[in-house]
């Protein structure tokens, strides 16, 4: 089988750099009758081949909107992108013609979602849905496309793939459905895979299997992986680098070991401290006081200042600059140096 998937898997071709994706100063707003929700306020991020970037954040932090903007699946309107660039191998996705963008979506940048059951069409066999990728994008005939579907189902470890290629989504368990989604996502050998909370709906023993599969496939195909999650445990297990998001901005960006060992932002510190730990048994958990901000009424200055123990006057008036704390380690905090020193 010499499809594109096997041939291109190893090293970059001449003329291709390692930098796959570069997001610059991205802003996303949602316009509604109640007003404007500022979901993303100036996000910068980048992703290289073979790299796993985790985007960590709580609900409303903008992590999923960032992913949807990169994938080009935001509903516009109500979403508006007033500023910013999303460069995929140097070409700005936001200024591309719809036709070109469609060719990138799914084939070059693919995505898997939290809820596999509602992402699959219940009235078509799963094999047919995977094969559709090859018919639409590669122009394969029915039997070749079906053979590809079986190969992919085997790749993601679905037992008895040949027999089950004609089964419907409801005939699979949650873990199996997520594997099928992964098979569809990697079908066309994308360079970038975005996984939005891929294991949140799964049981813990199944989550471990699915995360292993993602890791394996990423190494095998040398993809850049963006993992959107709220789970500090999953991140520690799989990511190379982390971007911590809060209130639509990236608060801290660092290599994974650096971030857990020397968090340089009060929000990151608070998150790490609120995990229940063994030696804290019987004591009060550390809790970040207050609530995440409303996107409609973003606080002035630093979005975290109403909940921050370090907050001074400057935090209420000015958005903090990015402070470099070390190689590949940046924190958007006026007092980053003090915070990282503890």
């Amino acid at each position: 089988m010499t499809t594109s998937m096997d041939s291109r898997a190893d090293r970059p071709r001449p003329g291709e750099t390692d930098r796959l994706l570069e997001v610059k100063d991205l802003h996303v707003e949602f316009h509604s009758r109640e007003g404007v929700a500022h979901a993303i306020n100036g996000v910068d991020l980048h992703l290289d081949r073979g790299e796993t970037l985790a985007v960590l954040g709580e609900s409303g932090s903008g992590k999923s909107v960032t992913a949807q903007a990169i994938m080009g699946i935001l509903d516009m309107p109500p979403a508006v992108i007033p500023r910013g660039q999303i460069l995929f191998q140097g070409r700005d996705l936001l200024t591309m013609k719809p036709r070109e963008r469609r060719a990138v979506r799914g084939a070059e940048i693919a995505m898997i979602f939290q809820d596999a059951l509602s992402s699959l069409n219940p009235v078509f066999p799963v094999g047919w849905q995977i094969a559709e990728m090859f018919r639409q994008h590669r122009g394969l005939n029915r039997s070749d496309a079906k053979a590809q579907a079986i190969r992919l189902m085997e790749l993601v470890n679905i037992p008895a793939a040949k027999e089950r290629v004609n089964a419907y989504p409801h005939q699979f368990s949650g873990g199996m459905r997520q594997r099928i989604m992964i098979a569809m996502a990697v079908a066309l050998d994308p360079k970038v895979l975005i996984a939005d909370e891929p294991t949140t709906a799964l049981d813990v023993t199944v989550q471990a299997q699915v995360m292993d599969l993602l890791k394996e496939l990423q190494a095998q195909f040398h993809m850049g992986l963006i993992l959107i999650t709220h789970d500090l445990g999953v991140v520690a297990d799989i990511a190379d680098r982390i971007n911590v998001m809060y209130g639509g901005s990236i608060m801290e960006s660092a290599d994974v070991r650096d971030l857990y060992a020397h968090p340089g932002h009060p929000y990151t510190q608070g998150l790490l401290d609120s995990i229940p730990r063994l030696d804290m048994k019987g004591q009060e958990l550390y809790a970040i006081k207050g609530l995440p901000p409303s996107l409609m009424r973003m606080p002035s200055g630093c979005p975290f200042h109403p909940r921050c123990a370090h907050a001074q006057d400057v935090c209420r008036s000015e958005f903090p600059p990015r402070v470099e704390l070390g190689p590949r380690h940046e924190s958007a905090c006026h007092f980053a140096q003090e915070v990282v020193r503890g």
Partner: peptide, 21 residues
């Protein structure tokens, strides 16, 4: 199977991977 929120634990702990659902 519970992921440990500590990157230093990566690869060091003994993991039991169950098969199937």
């Amino acid at each position: 199977a519970v992921p440990v929120p500590d990157p230093l634990a990566r690869g060091t702990r003994q993991e039991i991977k169950l098969q199937g659902d």
